[in-house]
Design a protein around this nucleic acid. Sequence first.
DNA 1: TCGACGGACCCAAACGTTTGGGTAGCGTGT
DNA 2: ACACGCTACCCAAACGTTTGGGTCCGTCGA
Lengths: 338, 338
Amino acid sequence: MTRQQAPTLRTVAATAGVDVSTVSRVLNSGPGDRARWAGPETVERILRTAEELGYRRNPHAASLRTARSQLVGVVVPRLQDFVLATIFEGIDQAGAELGYAAFVTNSLDDDAQRQARVEQLLSRRVDGLVLCDARTDDPLLQMLDERAVPYVLALRRSGDRVGAYADEVHGGRLVAEHLMQLGYRDPAVIAGPEYASTANDRVDGFRAALRAGGLNLSDDRVVRTGFDADAGRTGVAELLARGPAPDAVFATNDFAAIGALGALRERGLHVPDDIGVVGYNDTPLADSLPIPLSTVRSPVLDIGRAAFTLLEHHLTNKPHPTVTFTPTLIPRATTRPR
Amino acid sequence: MTRQQAPTLRTVAATAGVDVSTVSRVLNSGPGDRARWAGPETVERILRTAEELGYRRNPHAASLRTARSQLVGVVVPRLQDFVLATIFEGIDQAGAELGYAAFVTNSLDDDAQRQARVEQLLSRRVDGLVLCDARTDDPLLQMLDERAVPYVLALRRSGDRVGAYADEVHGGRLVAEHLMQLGYRDPAVIAGPEYASTANDRVDGFRAALRAGGLNLSDDRVVRTGFDADAGRTGVAELLARGPAPDAVFATNDFAAIGALGALRERGLHVPDDIGVVGYNDTPLADSLPIPLSTVRSPVLDIGRAAFTLLEHHLTNKPHPTVTFTPTLIPRATTRPR
DNA sequence: TCGACGGACCCAAACGTTTGGGTAGCGTGT
DNA sequence: ACACGCTACCCAAACGTTTGGGTCCGTCGA
């Protein structure tokens, strides 16, 4: 077997005895439309020789000609985050089904980095972007709007821009209702950073549901930190420093909840007897912690898939209204009836 | 501002009053070499107009011409896994520095999926692959060898193929030495799946160090499971079903360790008083667990970076010998002197 | 004074597709 | 018999680069 050059349309056309244009059209139309371009046994012959020669179309040549790369860029705060990795998986899956490939990069929630990464994706000539790290007020998005770059958001909202989201307000509400139902009367919340709509919405929903249940969430029962375990520790420290311990803690992220669990333990507070804890996201090990964590699960894979679909519709001028998914509460051992 | 077409080399050449070839050469050579292709003020003019017009080269056209895509494909078992996400980050970082972009996809350690994903990457015409999911005996790799596809491995070995690895044997040894030093005498191990070299090497190193310390690791103190928390639970169950409890458990993965922690707790065994536990990988929350987990850390970001460098050297016919990184032990609260 | 040489460019082909526009041959209706 | 419309193709231009070859002109050594 000699070291053959990768076969091109020309090779296929030559060995099948037709013109390259015919091969191209036959190969690119679905089984139904093929007959529009060639006679049945010509179609058959083209398909067969393409197969035999192991022909694969050169996407660069095609992109050059069509000015469409079938490539999308995905920007996430951090791929190490389980939720974001899953969203990307959804995007990649849905994309692959339609012949798209996806690039993904970390923005680390850092302005310069975001800018640079988006610029890089754009110079790779992606057809569009999925941004998972939108800010509530986001100059980058304005820039993209001005440049008319096709994009959709995922997970984090910004204004009323189109995207695929989870109903975070509802998620917060679920947590509040769960706690109230179990008899907790004085919950606190450890919230993520202000710039993420997700954290804010969860707190809003939580507060609203408490109010509807006749409880008030005062400002000193809310502490703003980050998204990681350390944020949970410092959150608990802050909360306890402010006065009497709450009877429950809602951390807007499982990692923060896990950090909180550790901090509470160090302070001799027993979960769930002394204090209830609920997280958010249903990280894979929430279930497997020494004390399994009560939490909220959003269909993140679906969010990813939907985000891609939205983008694809955008690219093909189909309607693509924002979609919202509903989270569910997963009660486990860190909360119990009082 | 009218809707301008993206400027091409031709546009730049025309407005700078030179030929496209000159522009191309000037733009593509480093600051040092530019003078080889044009006079100093022509260079200056070209650079300036390119800048002003906002010219960005079309990578598809370039790839078509050069038959190099500056694209690499990365295959990981699961991107949701922190370690793999970090390795990818390393690859992406190092790649970006040299003008490469990276695709990443999940193989889920499933043969058909791996095959399909690799095929997809190849039809995207990547210049090479980084495989993070190699098996000890791996037909896919043979196929790539035969087709002369440039690739390197990362993390998991296969035969003596080139790659960037952590010294897992050493890691296992560190754990054994740590346990022996603390006075544990009868450890057990919950190992990952057979097909992953990482798990095997860790166990081998562990066993060897025990032997060197005069201890024997009998077969019924080794249980083979998977890489997730559930594997840890069932691992513990299996171990305890076999006879008297060991005095320590080495889980070759933090998630498994966390599962083990939960299972031990349910059975009334206290960590670290009744039984010590050591994980592997230093997952971000190992540190923040209610009982912080003793574990081993490998420089995974560096492994990713090194893997890319290796691949790039391969692509440019430079020497690229396997590199190995040394892990370190992170003692925390799940082990203590007996 | 002449040839050689090098600097500073330009020319044109090629990479592999896609796609708007042919056209030859045939069947059909009148 | 003729126009017409299909079917089943083919032709060729274009997408934006890169790169192996020119060409022209000025300088320098002998």
